[in-house]
């Protein structure tokens, strides 16, 4: 059985192809202004990697911000359930009980029970504080490429205190810090700390249990991981490809849907 999951996020589109429970291909690209074109392209590259033709795919499930508007999939699932499903697929031996996911415009904390079933979750309200967008915009203000934010921040010896997590205010706060002559690495580490504080606050409300799993694009940022672990006071498990866990979950769900129909 071949299925695919397409995660149409606000900033990136991710696609995963699953064949008999194995992840055989994936693709990632910025969403751009036409998510339909992008998602087809991303799925295309995932299929190319897997060496599978589009016609061979039995079922596609969409997830993420654009899940309801895409023409690619016949059914959709919320990114929260898909993320939890992706973690279940990774395996119970990891012992994951808490998922922290930073997305482009949402951050989520999901609590799992001992059977890896979702028991609770929280999501930020309509505000960019503590999201991937927050990091992205501030990277632009600092003129540091997004993928260099992590390595640069690790050089920091004296991180600044960013007092606000409101993106609009943080932009001017960061601009002022630059004028005041603070080093870039200290400012960036300060930004990571501010995001981490906010997320950990949200996680505590949901209830934090070991092992904590960290995914979403910003989990690729070493400085962000570092700040989160300090704030949480514990180590986290970061998967190899944190961006595509949710898309994988959607692909697995697609397979389940087919199985149920077949019964």
């Amino acid at each position: 059985m071949i299925t695919a999951g397409v995660d149409l996020g606000s900033t990136y589109v991710k696609a995963v192809v699953v064949k008999d429970q194995e992840r055989v291909g994936y693709g990632v690209a910025p969403t751009g202004h036409d998510h339909d074109v992008t998602s087809k392209k991303v799925l295309g590259s995932a299929l190319l990697m897997a060496g599978i033709e589009f016609g061979e795919v039995d079922h596609i499930v969409s997830t993420g911000y654009g899940r309801r508007v895409t023409t690619l999939a016949r059914s959709s699932i919320s990114e929260i359930s898909a993320n939890a499903r992706g973690v279940q697929w990774l395996g119970s031996e990891l012992g994951i009980r808490t998922i922290i996911d930073i997305g482009g415009q949402d951050t989520k904390v999901i609590a799992l029970d001992d059977d890896l079933q979702m028991i609770n979750f929280a999501m930020n309200d309509k505000c960019a504080a503590g999201t991937g967008r927050f990091l992205e915009v501030l990277a632009r203000v600092l003129e540091v490429p997004l993928d260099k934010m992590g390595p640069v921040s690790m050089r920091s010896r004296d991180p600044v205190d960013i007092t606000t997590t409101c993106l609009v205010f943080a932009k001017s706060e960061v601009a002022n810090l630059v004028f005041d002559g603070h080093r870039k690495e200290d400012i960036i580490m300060g930004i990571h700390k501010a995001v981490a504080r906010r997320l950990v606050g949200m996680a505590k409300k949901v209830g934090v249990r070991d092992v904590v799993f960290f995914d979403g694009g910003p989990a690729m940022n070493i400085g962000m991981v570092h700040a989160m672990e300090r704030e949480l006071g514990r180590k986290m498990y970061v998967p190899e490809m944190p961006q595509i866990v949710t898309a994988t979950g959607a692909a697995i769900l697609a397979a389940e849907e087919l199985q149920k129909k077949g019964k």
Partner: peptide
Amino acid sequence: RTRIEAFVEMIKAR
């Protein structure tokens, strides 16, 4: 909607 859908999915999965 995302939150409500996830909430309903969670209830049904349970």
